[in-house]
Write a protein that binds this DNA or RNA. Structure first.
Lengths: 214, 214
DNA sequence: CGTTGTGAACGGCTTCACAGCT
DNA sequence: AGCTGTGAAGCCGTTCACAACG
């Protein structure tokens, strides 16, 4: 409340995209037993220039000591606070087909504070089934459950044709961060963020660089 | 051979990242029964300006007709050629744990010409098992198999600690395009591309925008 | 001395705007 | 008229370079 967050200017989105990487790498460095790091050291490990790291951090404050570097523990605490990672984030998954199941069972989310708290599917055959810790519910329950649990993050793993419809529903339920696994580009109102996970696009953007027969 | 590809200047990587999206959306438009599209129409569907699309395409040639737009079928053919998507790309997967299995069984790759042709794991318990169409082989076979099959693309789904080692091996085998599912940033020599798939980073870069209690 | 924090310079992607073709 | 292709302008993120400081 008293924190001077009001003074943070418009931070470029690329900066926000890099902060989680800083957190991840700093955590790793800390686990290796080092508790201070310079922007140079961090940059080497992430293939980023030291100036970039310092500039990125400078959007939010001063976290280092000249001549020394950054106390990792402290910097991590600050970064987590900036990104609001100091809390548990419940998420709602829609679509529990093959992909959705893999997502529910993916062990990588919860250590980072993201938990699939509710799952929905339009196929009545899946409804009622319990996967991991959650029981699949019908779409008709979505708004109620999302609002009652204060869920702000949605994960979409439905077929391409249904994606935009599902996303619209999520937005109507008050969700404004969406992780989209479907291979479609989707539209959301201002104030809602979408990140797409699409391995096929990733592959297709690499083959360009594979020269024929080398 | 006679194609004037030598005249293509250094294309910004962001452009290459957008081309697959153009392909995907154009394919969808074509399937809806439309066979000509303007940069404006495509841009609306992708949330991209029409100027951006025209500029992107202009790096590679002239594919439209003034006053008309682009013949989708023709443009798609050209784009696929630019990205070398007119061929099947065999890929090698390393790591057949939970995630690796999901990748092998993911039905989205093959329609786009990517096929997991070989799978490897260092755990002898998995070796010999057949998943989908491929039989898991020991790491010792990797170089031989990759070279014999002319595999240029690798997919990594091993635990974080092993990732850099596996990627180094892949590079030694002549692979220079890598899809990395592990939550680590990795180093590769010039001439090798890496794309990372990391849903956790994606989530962590969205919570920043979720203002407390709205 | 080593390293941060940062204004200024730089470079490159995006947008503009219009000539030119259909 | 409608839309492409593109030089030029504009904008925005990155890099530079150095004052400041432990």
């Amino acid at each position: 409340m008293t924190i001077a967050e009001e003074s943070i200017p418009n931070v470029p989105e690329v900066v926000i995209l890099r902060l989680p990487q800083y957190i991840r790498e700093l955590t790793r460095i800390l686990n290796e037993g080092t508790d201070v790091a310079s922007s140079q050291q961090l940059g080497n490990r992430l293939q980023v220039t030291s100036a970039q790291i310092r500039k990125d951090l400078s959007y939010f404050g001063r976290f280092g000591k000249q001549g020394r570097g950054y106390k990792i523990h402290y910097l991590l605490k600050e970064l987590r606070q900036i990104l609001r990672l100091n809390q548990e984030w419940p998420t709602a998954l829609v679509g529990v087909g093959r992909l959705g199941r893999a997502i529910i069972e993916y062990p990588g989310f919860s250590p980072q504070g993201f938990r699939v708290t509710a799952a929905f599917d339009s196929n009545s055959r899946q409804v009622g089934e319990t996967l991991g810790q959650v029981t699949v519910q019908p779409m008709s329950q979505m708004e109620k459950v999302i609002r009652e649990n204060g869920i702000r993050i949605g994960i979409v793993a439905v077929p391409a044709e249904q994606t935009q419809t599902v996303i619209n529903k999520m937005v109507d339920c008050g969700i404004n961060a969406i992780l989209n696994y479907a291979p479609v580009s989707c539209h959301v109102p201002n104030g809602t963020k979408v990140r797409n996970i699409d391995p096929v696009l990733a592959l297709q953007s690499m083959t360009y660089y594979l020269d024929p027969r080398t």
